[in-house]
Amino acid sequence: MVTVVSGLINVLIIAIYATVAMMIGILFMGIGRKIVARVHNRVGPPIYQGFIDIAKLILKKTNITHGWIYDLALLFSITGIVLTILFLPIGGVKLLSTEGDAFLVLYLLAIPALGFALGAGASGNPNSAIGVMRALVMMLSYELPFVISMVALMIYYDTTSIAEIVASQYGKWAILIPPFAISAAVADMALQGMLMEAPFDIPIAPHEIASGPMAEFGGKHLGSLMIYKAGTIVAYTTLFVDLFLGGGVVMKGGIVADVVNFIVWFILIFLVFTLSLLINTSFPRFRIEQAFKFYWKYEAVLAIIALVWVYWMVIS
């Protein structure tokens, strides 16, 4: 009986955290637009604009579909991103992250992307196919420096579990260790590609390929993709914070610590997201070949330097 009740409470906590995380993601979309607007010397939309947009899209009177494969985009995108968030520690609260590890998170993140790609392919729009091609090449590009940085962390802390990495960083964040400062810088540029912010907003370039994979999405399908976008903001920034900034854990034990950690986590992901927005507003768009070269030449070399340094630290 007690186990059932505590199990239910756990489920409830996880559900609340996931919902709050998605809400924060939607809020961040509005905040992001506001920040970009301020950089442009504009007023910008209200910060709750993301909620209005999603509500409008889902409440649209008609929705088109191009068949059941097209609908997979809707189903996979929200499912995959919520599932990913469940496997990330948020502010020191582990959620399900003890049941999987960083590799699982990397591959769970592929579920919504794949669903999105399937939907885009099934819509039959050639622009969508080109957009998906660019997105996949982008993925291949930024994953190399990112996984090298991640492998460095895993070797240093001798674990693959994100929860363990967060726990090991208590008191000393990874970014304070010299080689990981390089890794973090590399991973932050990879994050720029993951969030599809300029100069790496190549896949959705609206002026070249009519917003790429999203060209045929409208109504509830586009609404679900916006929810997915909101989720990716939280998921990727949280992944970065968990890996390099100790997951925002500054206290241990008790509900007070959870609240404080949550606030610190929120501030950290906000800072990471803001940094990426500031880079976004300052740069034009790369071509896809340039992005690939950027990641596989300069970023990868930096990441390898950090990895070799860490390896040397570990074996000596």
């Binding site: 489920v11 559900a15 996931a18 889902i58 649209k60 929705n63 609908d71 809707l74 189903l75 996979f76 995108s77 929200i78 499912t79 995959g80 919520v82 599932l83 469940l86 496997f87 399900l96 003890t98 049941e99 999987g100 590890d101 960083a102 590799f103 699982l104 769970l108 895993m154 001798d158 674990t159 693959t160 579990s161 363990e164 109504g219 509830k220 609404g223 679900s224 929810i227």
Partner: peptide, 27 residues
């Protein structure tokens, strides 16, 4: 180094599918 719990993934997926499924069915 770490764990892989398939039941957590599958049950988590079922729960995570609820909002998507609601949007899909209701509209």
């Amino acid at each position: 180094l770490g764990n892989y719990n398939t039941i957590a993934v599958i049950v988590g997926m079922m729960f995570a599918m609820i909002p998507a499924f609601l949007i899909y069915v209701l509209r």
